[in-house]
Design a protein around this nucleic acid. Structure first.
Length: 515
RNA sequence: GAGCCCGUAGCUCAGCCGGCUAGAGCACUUGACUUUUAAUCAAGGGGUCCUGGGUUCGAGUCCCAGCGGGCUCACCA
């Protein structure tokens, strides 16, 4: 590999440090007693005299320096933020030997190097809270130059590191240089911990179920296929965990939930990544009406914990997560936004209606699919504030219980926010005979070439035959909820390492066979 | 999968209708400077113009193909 001039220089600096007896990658721990953000927030003084942080020890990256002869200012960035350093030659080199300042600090340290500093906090003439450095330690030398992003007093950013490809491929650089990116991931973490707290407080059990499954069930999607050598059998990366969580309800848990990765072998775009995080929860003796009330509390709680408000701005719109949310049946929603009542229509009439609405249809589409098309084309985009769409056609939903009063429908709801589906829930189907029938219907779809049709799962059916209590289940896409609460428009922005093509198209030989 | 756009220094980008040795700012190097803050001042180094073909006296620029990326649309619980 060809090294750039700057990379060669840094390697030379590394060697010079070693030649001076300074280990650029020391083994011993460095004691950190203070953090940039805390100092910025809590530093106090009286009559110009500093009161606290008079013995502070910080560690982080050197992010810039302004050398003025025998004294310098530098920027230290730790895990919490930045603080200015004041480094005076005669302070860090009290004796005759000025090498640490003249050579190590001024010549051999580069932007991006990790250093440890000890000293006291004061305020400069210009009013900046600054650490007056008494001791400086090299903690780790950086050999690769970091992009230098500068900000002026008004907050204007110069030479921003913004190329999406480079940001995702080298997320470590993105995180180092773009502080707002870190903020998104702090919020993502808060979201998940708030959700977990909400469920744990109600006594529901967090569980783990297999990610490697012999039968991929629980959703309509194409799976990733792999092979277990010892068992000599194909396995699938899970597209859903629904059928396993229901087995646990059969086994006697009253409430179980799992937050984990799902894998779908489908297209990628700004709302789809091949692996994504979902939360699914199942609670016994409940129905979908109870679940709607629960989700309102949950999303309101999460919005508050993550952003501090129930109102969140997304793409310039204010979205209010405070419940209760509007509930609208699928038929009523279509009537409201198209003026057409489709509740009594058969397949032929629906197909004609679609044509009138300029919706492209094909012959493979059944009644359920046609209704879904109308809904997707004409209604979804209008559902900006959190809205429950309830009662879906039975054809689209093989795992939901038939509606208690309306034939042809199932007890299902989806929560829409800003025109996008955020949550999906049912009164779960627990009639084993009905369930078998519905899965048989799916098999017939698969025979007709539907790659996404659900597979038969005899063990799951056996579990239902042992008896599953009435149960309500819910799934929430964590990535998309994170996008909403962080005002981000692509899923790549809420994943540390979104899926990308390899940088140099060099796939290992043995992996090329068997697609 | 389709359309549009992009790929030039470590980073952000300019480079016209094809025309001298390919440019700027930051970063980097050398020097000056003990309270600066996009520090400043002076001097300097740094390029596989994504790759491969083609047209041409001459290609960063035009054409073709490929690779990579972005946006939009389509597909997709």
């Amino acid at each position: 590999m060809q090294l750039s001039e700057q990379e060669l220089l840094r390697r030379e600096n590394l060697q010079k440090l070693r030649d001076m007896g300074i280990e650029p990658y020391p083994a011993e721990a460095f004691e950190v007693t203070a953090y940039a953000k805390k100092i910025q927030e809590e530093f106090q003084e009286e009559a110009g005299e500093p009161l606290n942080f008079q013995q502070a020890s910080l560690a982080g990256r050197l992010m810039g320096s302004r050398v003025m002869g025998k004294a310098s200012f530098a920027e230290l960035q730790d895990s919490t933020g930045r603080i200015q350093l004041y480094i005076a030659r005669d302070e860090i080199c009290p004796g005759e030997d000025k090498e640490l300042y003249n050579t190590v600090f001024k010549k051999l340290l580069d932007i991006g190097d990790f250093i440890g500093v000890k000293g006291f906090v004061f305020r400069t003439r210009m009013g900046e809270i600054t650490l007056h450095v008494k001791e400086l330690t090299v903690l780790s030398k950086a050999l690769h130059p970091l992009p230098v992003v500068k900000r002026d007093e008004e907050g204007n950013v110069y030479d921003a590191f913004t190329d999406p490809e480079q940001r995702y491929r080298q997320r470590y650089v993105d995180l180092t240089v773009n502080p707002h990116v870190k903020e998104i991931f702090f919020k993502r973490s808060k979201l998940i911990s708030a959700m977990r707290r909400f469920f744990d407080d109600r006594g529901w059990l967090e569980v783990e179920t297999p990610a490697l499954q012999p039968i991929h069930g629980g959703a309509a999607a194409r799976p990733f296929k792999t092979f277990h050598n010892t068992l000599e059998m194909p396995l699938y990366l899970r597209i859903a965990n629904e059928l396993y969580l229901k087995r646990l309800i059969v086994g006697g848990f009253e409430g179980v939930y799992e937050i984990g990765k799902m894998f779908r072998n489908e297209g990628m775009d700004r709302t789809h990544n091949p692996e994504f995080t979902s939360m699914e929860i199942y609670v016994a003796y409940k129905d979908y009406n109870w679940m709607m009330a629960m989700v309102e509390q949950l999303t309101e709680y999460i919005a508050l914990e993550v952003t501090g408000h129930t109102k969140v701005e997304y793409e310039g719109k204010m979205i209010d997560f405070a419940g209760p949310y509007r509930r609208l049946s699928m038929y009523d929603a279509i009537k409201e936004y198209t003026g057409v009542d489709i509740s009594e229509m058969d397949e032929t009439a629906l197909r004609a209606t679609c044509k009138k609405m300029d919706i492209t249809v094909d012959d493979s589409m059944g009644k359920g699919k046609l209704i879904d098309e109308i809904f997707g084309e004409k209604v979804e985009e209008h559902l900006i504030q959190p809205t429950y769409i309830i009662d879906y056609p039975v054809e689209m939903t093989p795992l939901a219980k038939k509606h208690r009063s309306q034939p042809g429908l199932v007890e299902r709801f989806e929560l829409f926010v800003n025109g996008k589906e955020i949550a999906n829930a049912y009164s779960e189907l627990n009639d084993p005979i009905d369930q078998r029938q519905r899965l048989m219907d799916q098999l017939r779809l698969a025979d007709r070439g539907d790659f996404e049709a659900m597979a038969m799962d005899e063990d799951f059916l056996r579990s239902l035959e042992y008896g599953m209590p009435p149960t309500s289940g819910l799934g929430i896409g964590i990535d998309r909820l994170t996008m909403l609460l962080t005002n981000q428009h692509s899923i790549q922005e809420v994943l540390f390492f979104p899926q990308m093509r390899p940088e140099k198209a060099e796939l290992p030989e043995q992996d090329k066979k068997e697609g």
